[in-house]
Design a protein around this nucleic acid. Structure first.
Lengths: 235, 235
DNA sequence: CGCTACATTGACAGCGTTCAAGGTAAGTGG
DNA sequence: CCACTTACCTTGAACGCTGTCAATGTAGCG
């Protein structure tokens, strides 16, 4: 069962059908689905392309269909906090604010479905099921943010790494403990976990030494001891 | 202009009229306001009383009328991350999830207005202005969470303290650079900023030495150099 | 082959944590 | 009114994790 791991930017993440798996579309009639599809269009992105800028008007909602997306926030002095890595099934810009509080870009070749916010809002005004679906998605986003606050406030470097690994294992289509492709750079990991790139490298080395993980190649992660990694990641 | 600062738990925070200042009620008609008020009741709390537990069913939305509230999240191993300190005008449980992801309790004697979630949701199904108001509140909550992620991921101890101070200055009714009452303990501050209580003490001492802040009494903070503190707090 | 970008490793310093002692203030009871 | 208790806060010393700076290693690409 050998699997070729291409360079980071070449291999998108597949395995998501927006018109059957999408939580936004859950329990809608065929007619409603048809109308809802007309609220947006599919867009294709190469690797490392911007989706929207920080503080730009919040006019679209995106659903990730394939690929990997990074959501990040920059301060004036150049410091960067990565808010999250998104995968097929995730949403971008689901919170209805005037401006995006964050920037988003593709890590890999990606496909998104882009909904016009106004159309979506108007539609949801008279479609209570759609509204419930949106609220459900929002509550998931919140849940994730609570976990992340906890991680950044309370956890050590190696625990933060395990948190990321468990997230990737659970959220990336097709990921198994033996095959987790890291689409993001070490710097991205560092900026996500509130660490430096050197600390990331050293903590990875420590986890390797302890026999919890293994790297067949630089961006191909194996989790050798899933329970131990989960325990370290616990929130 | 002397002002008596009572012990932490004795002096609530006032200065908010839910029926004129409340963003939930913005631009509603008198008739709608009347109906909306009937969706909830006012509740009074002493100091350090629970409002809801982590993972309990999310059946209410609260609006803080007076006092100070702390929102916190516990892990199995006892570690705690404080998510936020809430003051008059703030909301609790505005995100519609099945269970609260956090616990909430009063820091001081407090007054809350408690809305039944189902009533509020049913009302908002047919009142688009109310729905916009709820979305607006949610986007504020999000904005705050983004800032907090950045603070925990990227900032040094003394910068995190300044971030808290600026927040208190801006959000606590009646707060001025000369009079900021700290209703929370040093441990609460530590658990909010992802530090230990000792680091909080030492960083406070450093900020005092540098002439940025002053403590007339242990829980009465003065910001001597507001621009410098704001700069350190910048996100 | 050499260039470039990225990742790892090493040395060292410093910030923050840990453990421990001492200080402060409110509350209690003699 | 004052010692005593208790809870909370501050300070000190030592350690260690993480950051910084620098050198080395590695992989993709021209």
């Amino acid at each position: 069962m050998s699997q070729l791991f291409l360079p980071r930017s070449m291999e998108p993440v597949y395995g998501y059908n927006p018109f059957s798996d999408c939580p936004l579309f859950r329990d809608l009639s065929v007619k409603q689905l048809f109308e809802l599809r007309r609220c947006g269009t599919q867009i294709e992105l190469g690797a490392d392309e911007p989706i929207f800028d920080q503080f730009s008007p919040c006019t679209s909602v995106f659903n990730v269909i394939s690929g990997a997306i990074v959501v990040e926030r920059f301060a004036d002095d150049g410091r960067r906090q990565i808010i999250g890595f998104l995968f097929p099934g995730d949403y971008l810009g689901i919170v209805n604010s005037a401006r995006y509080e964050v920037a988003a870009r593709s890590l890999t070749k990606s496909t998104l479905y882009r909904f016009g916010r106004k159309k979506l809002v108007d539609f949801s005004l008279h479609n209570h099921q759609l509204r419930r679906n949106i609220e459900h998605i929002m509550s998931n986003v919140f849940y994730r943010l609570m976990e992340q606050l906890f991680i950044l406030g309370q956890k050590k470097a190696h625990e933060r790494l395990c948190f990321l690994f468990v997230h990737l294992l659970e959220r990336m289509p097709g990921a198994t403990p033996e095959h987790i492709q890291l689409y993001m750079s070490r710097q991205d990991i560092a900026d996500y976990l509130g660490l430096t790139i050197e600390t990331v490298s050293r903590s990875l080395a420590k986890l390797k030494t302890d026999g919890l993980i293994h790297f067949p190649s630089i961006n191909h992660l194996q989790i050798l001891n899933v329970p131990a990694v989960r325990k370290l990641a616990a929130t």
